[in-house]
């Protein structure tokens, strides 16, 4: 399935790496430098979307276009982000 991840950085520049893992393998990886929507292809149920990087001064909002566990949108405070979502 195709998945879109929307990221909004607030109060300065941020930097986030989105990685899709499927059964221990890295399926895709995208580095996000500015707010926007990132398309991810070939994502399957049970895959994990890993999100890590730096959230700017006023934090970041992240939402994934498909059902995940836990569900999105999520807000991250300023500082390091290390999070992961299972695609349902």
């Amino acid at each position: 399935m195709n998945v879109e991840v929307n990221i909004t950085f607030k109060g300065g520049a941020g930097n986030v790496t989105i990685t899709v893992f499927s059964n221990g393998n890295q399926v895709s990886q995208v580095v996000v430098l500015i707010s926007g929507t990132v398309p991810l292809t070939n994502v399957s149920s049970g895959d994990i979307i890993s999100i890590d990087g730096i959230s700017p001064a006023n934090g970041s909002d992240i939402s994934i276009s498909v059902s995940t566990d836990p569900p999105t949108p999520s807000h991250y405070e300023s500082g390091p982000i290390m999070d992961s979502y299972i695609v349902l």
């Binding site: 893992f21 890295q26 994990i48 290390m82």
Partner: peptide, 15 residues
């Protein structure tokens, strides 16, 4: 190194 470490743990969980 910490961010890489996070990805390697998530990779293992995805198995």
């Amino acid at each position: 190194l910490i961010l890489d470490f996070h990805r390697s743990v998530i990779s293992k969980i995805s198995i």
